[in-house]
């Protein structure tokens, strides 16, 4: 099972990196969203896979008995999903605002912070 997930992670990472290398802001953002999913899957798989048994303690038991899915990566991923979503939203709005103000969705055209004809720092005192 892990090998299929490793293949899936490979695909997620490759596609997200390929999209992030684009100059179009919206592709970069979609690439970032995929990157989040890929990393989550990677952490999930690294904690080993167990089918269909969530880490819940039975109402009459004091601790886990038998084999269940690893709870630790799940706890890590749960918050990661929410945080990556809120960052995705932030970047989406940021990209949208940049598009509105700069009139382009091409990252090469976004040179407000580092202008192409920047004369460099002054050499006087």
């Amino acid at each position: 099972m892990e090998s299929v997930f490793a293949l899936l992670v490979t695909a997620f990472m490759a596609v997200s990196v390929y999209l992030m290398l684009s100059r179009h802001i919206i592709r970069v953002l979609i690439g970032l969203a995929l990157l989040g999913n890929g990393v989550n899957l990677l952490i999930f798989t690294a904690g080993r896979l167990t089918r269909e048994t969530p880490p819940l303690i039975a109402p009459d038991a004091e601790a886990i008995t038998g084999i269940v899915a690893n709870p630790l990566p799940q706890a890590l991923i749960l918050t990661a999903i929410v945080i990556s979503f809120s960052f995705f939203a932030l970047l989406l709005v940021l990209g949208f605002r940049a598009y509105q103000d700069l009139g382009t969705d091409d990252t090469d055209g976004m040179r407000a912070a580092e202008p192409v004809d920047d004369p460099g720092p002054p050499e006087g005192y």
């Binding site: 892990e2 090998s3 997930f5 490793a6 992670v9 490979t10 990472m13 990677l42 798989t45």
Partner: peptide, 10 residues
């Protein structure tokens, strides 16, 4: 990059 992540995970 994808291969690196996948191989590391495997």
């Amino acid at each position: 990059a994808g291969l690196g992540f996948g191989a590391l995970l495997l």
